[in-house]
Amino acid sequence: MPISDLIDRTIKEIAPLDETAMAAARARQDQLTKPLGSLGRLEELSIQLAGIFGEATPAIRKKTVILAAGDHGVVAEGVSAYPQDVTPAMVMNFLGGGAAINVLSTHAGADIIVLDAGVAADLPPHPSLRSVKVGRGTDNIAVGPAMTREQAIWCLEIGIETAREQIAAGSDLLACGDMGIGNTTPSSAITSVVIGADTGITTGRGTG
């Protein structure tokens, strides 16, 4: 069943990893002055990047972290140790450069942009903030759907469009993150549906 033109087109554009580039990257790793496989996961990631870029030694010149912020109606059920007004406070912390992701991004030489995809508060303008509100938070999934199908599609399209914009602006590598009090509850619910697992397996202690 088609979802939307943009989403369907994007899915079709996703190509398999370049096996030739990965083989060349793996061979290069084995020629370096180190024990075979000694860098563990880092070696695996470098080989995967070679497959994505289609080059044995891809050059990553510009990196961008995209943070999407939004609130979750399920916080009304007491699923978080923190109140919902922490969400806009954390967004302002991101924009002010005071959060852990700012430190990590600076260390990695990555830019940060923040999307207000549904914070249940009005945020002041900022050069690194983009307002793409789908709503002022979602509805409570404990009593009904968190959002409509149309809103869910809109969220996916916002993500695709943002990624395309950053790539067009020269980004070679994108990292995604999210902020929203109560976010691990819908994450666990979605994971349970996608992989068919009981929520007792996909749900941890969270902040509580």
Results as ranks from 00 to 15, higher is better:
L104V: 14
G206D: 03
Q31L: 13
V193D: 12
I195P: 02
A163V: 02
P16H: 04
G118L: 07
A50Q: 06
K62Q: 08
G196Q: 08
L67G: 00
K34R: 11
K62N: 12
T138C: 00
R61Q: 14
G73I: 06
E150D: 15
A25H: 00
V79F: 11
G96S: 10
M1V: 14
P186M: 03
T20P: 00
T33E: 15
G208M: 15
G54C: 11
E165C: 05
E13T: 03
R9P: 03
D116M: 05
T199V: 14
A121N: 00
P58K: 02
D172I: 03
E19T: 01
D139P: 01
I47L: 01
G159Y: 05
P127M: 06
E77M: 05
S187W: 02
G144H: 11
A169P: 01
G78I: 09
I47Q: 02
T138Y: 06
A168Q: 09
I190A: 14
D139V: 02
V74G: 03
G182N: 14
L156C: 13
R149Q: 13
L156N: 08
P2S: 15
T148R: 04
A168Y: 00
N102V: 00
Q84A: 09
T202A: 11
C176I: 12
G40W: 07
D5C: 05
A100G: 12
S188H: 07
G98S: 04
T138I: 02
D71F: 06
V143N: 11
L49P: 01
I153T: 11
L156I: 12
D122H: 09
S46Q: 08
A120T: 09
L49Q: 11
P83S: 03
A100V: 11
T20G: 08
K12V: 07
K12N: 05
E13R: 07
A189Y: 02
L67D: 01
S128W: 03
V114M: 13
I181P: 01
R28E: 12
R164H: 13
A59G: 01
S187E: 09
S192R: 04
P186Q: 08
T106K: 15
G118Q: 11
I11C: 12
V132K: 14
S131I: 10
E13S: 10
M90A: 01
T87R: 10
R149F: 08
F53K: 05
A152R: 09
A163T: 08
S187Y: 04
V193T: 07
D172N: 05
P2R: 07
L45G: 06
A163W: 08
L104Y: 07
D116F: 02
P145Q: 10
V91N: 04
R28T: 10
K34P: 12
F94N: 03
I160V: 12
D8S: 12
T203F: 09
F94A: 00
